[in-house]
């Protein structure tokens, strides 16, 4: 991939490149995130990061590895290679409304120099997943080791309450699989075979999707989530599900 950008080179692009409107939005989002993340101490966590002990984070990131994804949203160009790779890797049926990940498009006519933003979305593998709470038969559950929200196909009765409960529209019913289907960070199709990245993260030419282990302070996702230079936010914080998919820019 010769069109990939070097992260280190790219990080120092400087804040002057970000339009005013977007900067305002960052600030708003920054306010929004403080309420959900680590009991409202996200910014303080970031600023005291160097002094914090690993055990402090274990409470927050209770899984090992604690899989997580960070979206560097402004890099997304909607080439949809991630979606194609996901469909191929995870045998997502070719029917309307069947997808494990997708890209949303937001027009930003007021932003200086910006016309649109693409927002990749997938299952947020929440720490407090609504879908798991509402499932009558434990057909969907949180993996005790890595925190991925999993499906136990034979338990699914197809009541679709999990779809109602999900604040991220991350689930769909698959007639082929005879169960609700959703993103599982490719645990069965890639990670179990020793791959380090999910299919979408691997396929992305712009390195939008950074996948890794939040419980590891040396991991890139940990560093991105705990940086102080750029805002980090999550989608729908008010739904209170403590998602493990984060968004940032750069």
């Amino acid at each position: 991939m010769d069109n990939k950008m070097d992260l280190d080179k790219h990080q120092n692009e400087g804040i002057e490149n970000i339009p005013m409107q977007q900067r305002r939005d960052f600030l708003k989002m920054g306010l929004a995130i403080t309420g959900i993340f680590a009991g409202g101490s996200m910014l303080s966590v970031a600023s005291t990061f160097n002094r914090a002990h690993a055990s402090d984070f274990a409470k927050k990131y209770p899984y090992k590895p604690h899989y997580s994804m960070v979206m560097r949203q402004d890099r997304c160009i909607d080439c949809e290679r991630c979606m194609e790779a996901c469909v191929k890797t995870n045998h997502v049926p070719n029917v309307h409304g069947a997808y494990r990940t997708t890209i949303l498009e937001k027009e930003t006519p007021d932003a200086i120099g910006g016309k649109r933003e693409f927002i990749p979305v997938l299952c947020n593998q929440c720490n407090l997943p609504q879908c798991v709470r509402v499932c009558p038969t434990k057909a969907t559950y949180k993996d005790k080791t890595n925190g991925i929200v999993m499906m136990k196909i034979q338990n699914c009765i197809g009541c679709l309450t999990c779809q109602e409960g999900c604040p991220y529209n991350a689930r769909y019913f698959s007639e082929e699989k005879k169960a609700v289907d959703k993103c599982n960070f490719c645990i069965d199709t890639r990670l179990a075979h020793g791959e380090k990245l999910t299919a979408c993260a691997f396929a992305c030419p712009a390195e939008v999707r950074v996948f890794g282990d939040l419980s590891n302070q040396e991991d890139q996702v940990f560093k991105l989530v705990h940086q102080i230079e750029k805002q980090v936010w999550v989608l729908r914080p008010e739904a209170g599900t403590r998602p493990n998919v984060f968004y940032t820019k750069g």
């Binding site: 950008m5 692009e13 490149n17 402004d74 160009i77 909607d78 080439c79 910006g114 693409f118």
Partner: peptide
């Protein structure tokens, strides 16, 4: 003009565009 490694979605209108 704006640098090629900024404002990606200005020229990249994507599959949707």
């Amino acid at each position: 003009a704006f640098a090629s490694n900024t404002r990606c979605a200005t020229c990249h209108i994507g599959v949707k565009g």
